[in-house]
Amino acid sequence: MTIRRNAPMPDSIRHFMRAGQHPARSVPCPHCGAAEHRPCRILANGRILSQPHPRRTSAWAEAVACCPHCQAAPGTPCHTDGIPLLDDVHARRHLEAKEMAA
Results as ranks from 00 to 15, higher is better:
61 A>C: 11
46 G>P: 01
55 R>Y: 04
55 R>L: 12
49 L>I: 03
61 A>T: 02
67 C>S: 06
94 H>E: 07
60 W>S: 04
94 H>Y: 08
68 P>D: 03
82 G>S: 08
89 V>I: 07
93 R>P: 06
96 E>H: 12
92 R>W: 10
83 I>M: 08
69 H>L: 00
93 R>F: 07
66 C>Y: 06
62 E>S: 12
73 A>L: 13
43 L>F: 00
55 R>D: 13
58 S>E: 10
88 D>R: 15
51 Q>H: 11
75 G>E: 08
48 I>K: 12
48 I>S: 07
60 W>L: 06
74 P>Y: 02
57 T>R: 14
72 A>N: 03
47 R>Y: 04
48 I>G: 04
57 T>Q: 15
54 P>H: 03
50 S>E: 13
68 P>G: 05
55 R>T: 13
64 V>Y: 01
42 I>Q: 08
83 I>E: 10
71 Q>F: 09
85 L>I: 14
54 P>D: 12
47 R>L: 10
81 D>P: 02
65 A>D: 05
90 H>N: 00
64 V>A: 05
76 T>A: 13
62 E>R: 15
52 P>Q: 06
70 C>H: 05
73 A>T: 11
73 A>V: 11
43 L>G: 04
68 P>W: 02
87 D>V: 05
55 R>I: 00
52 P>N: 08
61 A>Y: 07
50 S>Y: 07
57 T>W: 10
81 D>I: 01
88 D>E: 15
65 A>Q: 02
83 I>T: 13
75 G>T: 07
56 R>K: 04
87 D>F: 14
81 D>H: 07
73 A>I: 06
54 P>K: 06
44 A>F: 08
62 E>L: 15
91 A>N: 04
95 L>W: 09
62 E>T: 13
96 E>M: 13
89 V>A: 04
68 P>M: 03
73 A>H: 07
58 S>C: 12
67 C>G: 05
54 P>Q: 11
69 H>R: 10
72 A>V: 06
46 G>I: 01
82 G>H: 04
89 V>C: 08
43 L>P: 00
76 T>C: 08
71 Q>P: 00
63 A>M: 11
53 H>S: 03
92 R>H: 12
79 H>T: 07
57 T>V: 14
48 I>D: 05
48 I>E: 11
87 D>W: 06
88 D>H: 09
46 G>M: 03
81 D>T: 02
96 E>I: 05
58 S>T: 11
71 Q>C: 09
46 G>C: 01
56 R>I: 03
48 I>A: 10
74 P>C: 01
86 L>R: 15
85 L>A: 05
58 S>D: 15
65 A>P: 04
49 L>P: 04
53 H>L: 08
68 P>F: 04
80 T>K: 13
90 H>A: 01
76 T>R: 14
79 H>M: 09
